[in-house]
Design a binder for these strands. Sequence first.
DNA 1: ATTATCTATAGATCTATAGATAATGC
DNA 2: ATTATCTATAGATCTATAGATAATGC
Lengths: 217, 217
Amino acid sequence: MGRPKRDDSRDTRQEILDRALELFATHGFTGSSMRDIAKAVGVRESALYHHFPNKNAILTTVLESSGPGALNSLMTNDLVRIIESLGPHQVLRTMGETVLTLWSTPRERHLLRLIMAEMPRLKEAGLFDLQAQVWRVRTRIGELFASLVERGLIKPIDPRTASLRFMGPLLMIRVLHLSDLTSTPNLEAMREDLMRHIDSFWETVKPEPATKKEKRR
Amino acid sequence: MGRPKRDDSRDTRQEILDRALELFATHGFTGSSMRDIAKAVGVRESALYHHFPNKNAILTTVLESSGPGALNSLMTNDLVRIIESLGPHQVLRTMGETVLTLWSTPRERHLLRLIMAEMPRLKEAGLFDLQAQVWRVRTRIGELFASLVERGLIKPIDPRTASLRFMGPLLMIRVLHLSDLTSTPNLEAMREDLMRHIDSFWETVKPEPATKKEKRR
DNA sequence: ATTATCTATAGATCTATAGATAATGC
DNA sequence: ATTATCTATAGATCTATAGATAATGC
């Protein structure tokens, strides 16, 4: 046996990470053995140790390459300027379309499950802190709403409550439609939930027409 | 050694279930060994097998005795009548206080973590289906809102969206404040989030004063 | 006699390592 | 020479069982 012939279609290291994510997401970290991972990749256990020093390093690498999260990456510095040109309602709808696309990829669904399942382990290892992450995004969205209030683009509202009212249903929609890996998600139903939520949220924060008239005078 | 002297303060079977829930919640089902459970209870592994046929039976029993969930148990048949006498806003606030109390017990926090972590296993074993459960509660809350609309107690709103807008923030608050078992929850901050949400939700669904005047005519 | 523990251990599985082997690329 | 695999296996840990032992309750 020994070293196999070169196969350009195969990157073993990446395949280990991909199969490990799938297994960790469905059976948990401790529920997936090195043997399981090796079998899924199609090599012997010892080959895994050529690419990673131990099982924990596989988990660490999977998570380090996981990216910042959809909502977080949407909170860019020029978001307020984009909102000023396109209008808040249109931007919120676009944000909805974006999270729909990003969240519904198999990879993101597996990461969601992994993070839900391994929360304590990931936090203790300093790899991912779900609670802190949600707090951070909530704060950033709160700041966004605060600056929109300042610019008169939405009603005067408490930013903390507004971020909760905006994000809460998004999280619930995500869990409801995407957290069960055994069934294919109904993306049309999910888009409907998402857009109805955003439109209905917009109705509750859009500035009063009366206020607009006053400004015009 | 052999059988220990009777100790009325000790119910080994129940202690096995309690310690197992704690361990499963922090390290997962596969991450907690029978040895770990036995050590936490203060007996040998073989004593566990006197009370339960195997490890899986411990998990099953833990979950069977877990109850219906706070939101679910609030959705009683006479809820509409209570709302008619106390008013929707007051009832929503009382519901908030109730879930705050029920969710923040150590037992409910451990169950939340267990369910988040072991979703696929619990679903496959037919023990608990988180997705289906959330759908069910959402539907019941939707029906509640529909009947409140019918009675003119709240604005005409789409029940599906309303249930999402009501429940989503509740779920987010629960995850944000109660899912990390390594820190004691800040119940005052949680109550504030909860009550601000409920008050702000009420503002968006309370019937128009204009409509009331029209009715009086 | 029954119940609730214990000691001891079988047998499976798991992580990780040692050392052999063959392909690759300088 | 280096890299990527393999075979083989050590040693730890895990689930579960057999059988001994002492307290309990009829």
